[in-house]
Design a protein around this nucleic acid. Sequence first.
DNA 1: CGTCGAGGTGAGAGCGCTCTCGCTCCCGGC
DNA 2: GCCGGGAGCGAGAGCGCTCTCACCTCGACG
Lengths: 344, 344
Amino acid sequence: MTETAPRPTLEAVAALAGVSRATVSRVVNGGDGVREALVTRVRRAVEELGYVPNQAARSLVTRRHDAVAVVIAEPETRVFADPFFALQLRGISKELTAHDNQLVLLLTEGRDDHARVGRYLAGGHVDGALVFSLHLDDPLPGLIQHAGVPTVFGGRPGWSESDGDAVYVDSDNRGGAREAVRHLVGLGRSRVAHITGPLDQTSAADRLDGFRDVMPDADPRLVEESDFTPAGGERAMRALLDRRPDVDAVFAANDLTAVGALRVLREHGRRVPEDVAVIGFDDMLPVAEQADPPLTTVRQDIEGMGRLMARLLLGRLGHRTDRDAEGTSAGVVLPTTLVRRASA
Amino acid sequence: MTETAPRPTLEAVAALAGVSRATVSRVVNGGDGVREALVTRVRRAVEELGYVPNQAARSLVTRRHDAVAVVIAEPETRVFADPFFALQLRGISKELTAHDNQLVLLLTEGRDDHARVGRYLAGGHVDGALVFSLHLDDPLPGLIQHAGVPTVFGGRPGWSESDGDAVYVDSDNRGGAREAVRHLVGLGRSRVAHITGPLDQTSAADRLDGFRDVMPDADPRLVEESDFTPAGGERAMRALLDRRPDVDAVFAANDLTAVGALRVLREHGRRVPEDVAVIGFDDMLPVAEQADPPLTTVRQDIEGMGRLMARLLLGRLGHRTDRDAEGTSAGVVLPTTLVRRASA
DNA sequence: CGTCGAGGTGAGAGCGCTCTCGCTCCCGGC
DNA sequence: GCCGGGAGCGAGAGCGCTCTCACCTCGACG
């Protein structure tokens, strides 16, 4: 194990620059109220010694940590199979590093982990939290609220009624779904089916609502609940074909499901889009673009959601990111766009 | 903004329990050398006040942080399109939380980020680092070595010759590739092609080496470099069919590439596996299982790699995880297994 | 019955930083 | 020529914790 040389302290820099610790501190933290000459002298000393502030000592007195927790609660492997979180993380990461904040990742699976996360957040290790709460019955949001840590949620939390001041970022799932279904109707399709996601997730529920907005009188047999996976999409499509062989369009709750549906349709000899038009959701590139035929889908800006979440949180933490993010005390809903490819 | 109540300190707990700070500290950190009676009294006080140690204050004196950085250097979006990192992260996360360590995620894109990461690691914010260094010419490993932070690499770093004491965890890419190609040969195929990954990554290079181990005399026209993506797989497969229409087996460097190849083969009217046997690498479940036909592939235990990386690092940090991880000063290579499905 | 040592406990000195407060110095106004 | 005030800088007091070391109390041993 390499012995790490004792890192230089403020004191050392101060000595070298011939000033007091206070002055060095001032320079390191922006340098206001210090004469230009001294600033450069201190800067040089910092450079020479390779001084890096000790974050622990700093946090001890400032009570800030310049760190944000990202909590991803997901017992299922499935989540990791789609790049959704990865993209959000990327957006979050970019925004956080742009403001010199660190990203502490907390992955949870199961109840005991929840307690751990609650303790960690309550422990004041981070300045705020970004939480992905997927399920309606998730106890995590409650725990976090209780911990008193500024939080922004990814996706609309299920319990929005019970607690008004939750800040969240979401895609316009309902609006996107409406646009998709309208597109299908515009193509002259009248027997439009919908393969939903797990309805205990708000995103899936909202997409179903969007579907119903456009097709209020749809035969209930044209709606099949599924689980956002290709295999689930296959099962659902089979059920749908079984019940309503005359189906002429399918709005799948996400791209993976759509891919499963495509496979079953092909298997049953239905041509897409001629016999059955198919439309997905997410615009997960490798999936949607490589599907056969390439998938028409509703794009959501996942990385942008991540960035926005981070920006909102930093705003709440007083980071004065930009004018825009300030003052938001409820949810922000990002628009979606329909991407036309070959399948509808 | 909810005003956070001033959190109780050691002092407060000590006062309530009627002991000194030192004793409370002892109890909080394990409680050795303190009478049972006092231990319970202190524990009760901790409970009552909801005391949580201030990590900053603790780190300031112990110089430990109980935090590990995970550095993922990847300028490309591609990485996020496959769940590789997500799974590794999951394994890492499990292992770290099991030992009460936090995971600080550092995503980098581009050179300036490297400097940032270097500074962060050198800054002594974390006890160690887990680094995914994908490319041969990546300057990151050097920077990190320079920062003097205990590090475990994910995947064999390219510069292993220049620096012997790098600890890394890798899959047996070469052995897995050998097994795959032998399987194809065992099927009676003699014109086996290989679609490689980007050869500036050790994993891709090693798989190519494995291919060559079994097919030392292969026509160079049967090897086509690609990029681990489905689109790249399509391109490569087309090139291969063009040059050697008589190809009767394909070993693709990963599953995504294999899927692209499958598509092109189907397009060209070749039956899989009758006319051309196809084999992938990774066993990315949603991809491999849902492929048409389901993909025979080489499975690597990605989550296990993550766990092992974390365990090795914690071992180096003196965490005494388990007997096993100790004393490893070089690389650890995890076995792969061939998963037979329909495509070969 | 005195002595020694082991086991428990508390006092106190920092860890490296920030931030308040007070001192100094210099400028402009009367 | 004196005074008020602002700008620039330093001294010093902590932030909440750990850890050394001295002290104290026993039980065991000679």
